[in-house]
Design a protein around this nucleic acid. Structure first.
Lengths: 298, 298
DNA sequence: TTGTAGGCGTTATCAC
DNA sequence: GTGATAACGCCTACAA
């Protein structure tokens, strides 16, 4: 060991991986790092893996499953021992390739482990339903939703579906609920809210698929002098740091983003024999009531 | 090639790397992914590298240079061809090891390339000076600063130094400017602002080392009914999305976070022969004036 | 305990 | 061109 330090020897990971067929490498494919919710998950994932000497290769797919397939292929080529995905919606050929190559994978932000995978997260439909029930219980009759883009995004779709289904169960007419899809940025949220308020007798309760969208919606109202929650209640999702910066601050559902990364790392690090018993891990969401929601205006 | 698709052949990257001594792997060591500014840089970095088939291993050091050394070592072991750092402040032994192992490196968020490195970013001291001049030109006489924790963080230190030096040049007494150090989160910014306003004749112009801190400061004032910018001007740094969500929205200096990542990737991808001519790349900052700053209260 | 041979999957080289 | 061969650095197994 003294020779090691003296000569500055560093083992060659490639040779070691080649010989031992263990790379100590994991991969993560997420939509983007520009959204705090994914960055936080990756932060938790990386930190936990690092404790066990596993390095993380990260790829951003831009919500595109075709790109994702190519990235997964490249990760296999790099020899990763497992891959962490976001959501359960992926090309069949992607997962088949991983199965064939004996590369494990975990889905996050969902509780659907698919045929052969594992899931660490929560039920997006149930979350949407929670939002619906909360707003219904405040007495609202006219609802709207601003959700994320649903293409290749089962989380966004699930939240919308859950919200609408629950409203229906509660006796509201599902067809009369306007649903906007918008990319996760403040300006898109603002625009969606603008369109939403153009109609004659607009919604008094708006459920948003992300705090980012809700922040844009609140911002629009603030600029136009529309009282929140006096005139319209706005509810967010995620409980990002921004949820406490808007005026009023946001009622929202807290998602355990960082924790999902930590648990995904634990799954990745666990012995393959244990995987069967870890196929599904549902983490609790927390409803956080702040100033952006209130009773239906008389 | 038809056999390749038929058999599902995927080349073995470890074997290829071993034989060719080229891993097509790069590393990044950043303080944390929980700060949008670093996440955005990594997003740009990863996207650009991916275009050229280079994968990115990412590590978070938590602003600790000892941890950083170990991560750099592990990255060398993994065979990365270059490492992207944040800032120019690193252990000498870290950089020496990389020099010895012929692993290239780039610093971001700084214009100081050190002895043997490269720098893609901006001059933090100059940025601090810009803040000082802007607030001085508004007529302010009493200043304060809420900066980041300066331990192992040359960017936070540089901004503070630049701010104070410029104030001195402009005829103010440097010693009378209170400087708070706070971790980059809203609550810490709020607390710092609270302490700052306790004194008898508090500052009328507060420069913050990050929009996050400025957001906390504005939030404190909003809660206490202190008029911003009527009573006190608050200036941020970074131009994060939150800068437009506070009330009032934040005057700030825009940092080209994503672009630094893209340019760092270009440096990484460039031929080693070209590196000498790319040692320093200064990207422009942009002063964005919004509602949180105004003239000195009579 | 210390030493040595073989092979992991590539790629570069050299002989044909 | 086409095809055989050696070597990258490490780990394991077996021999001394």
């Amino acid at each position: 060991m003294s020779a090691v330090t003296e000569l500055g020897y560093v083992p060659n990971g490639s040779a070691r991986a080649l010989r031992s067929t263990r790379s100590r490498l994991a991969g993560a494919i997420i939509p983007t790092l520009n959204h705090a919710i994914y960055a936080a998950m990756v932060d938790g994932l990386e930190s936990r893996l690092a404790e066990s000497g596993v390095s993380l290769i990260i790829n951003t797919s831009g919500y595109d499953n075709d790109i994702e397939f190519n990235q997964a292929r490249l990760l296999v080529e790099r020899g990763v021992e497992s891959i962490v995905f976001v959501g359960a919606n992926h090309h069949a050929k992607t997962l088949e390739m991983l199965d064939e190559k004996r590369v494990g994978y975990v889905f996050t932000y969902t509780n659907d482990p698919g045929e052969t995978g594992a899931a660490i997260g929560f039920d997006n439909a149930k979350a949407g339903a929670t939002g619906a029930r909360f707003l219904h219980d405040l007495g609202h009759k006219k609802f709207a939703m601003i959700g994320g883009i649903t293409k290749d995004n089962d989380r966004a779709q699930g939240r919308i579906d859950g919200f609408l289904s629950e409203l229906e169960k509660l006796g509201h007419d599902r067809e009369s609920v306007p649903v906007f899809e918008a990319p996760y940025d403040v300006e898109s949220g603002r625009q969606a809210m603008e369109s939403l308020m153009q109609v004659e007798d607009p919604a008094t309760a708006v459920f948003c698929g992300s705090d980012i969208l809700a922040a844009g919606a609140v911002k629009y109202c603030q600029a136009k002098g529309i009282d929140v929650p006096g005139k319209v209640s706005i509810m967010g999702f995620d409980n990002l740091e921004i949820a406490e910066l808007t005026s009023p601050d946001l009622t929202t559902l807290e998602v355990p983003a960082r924790n999902m990364g930590v648990h995904a790392a634990d799954y990745t690090l666990a012995d393959v024999k244990q995987h069967a018993s870890m196929r599904q891990r549902e983490l609790p969401l927390r409803l956080i009531v702040r100033g952006s929601t209130g009773a239906r205006p008389d």
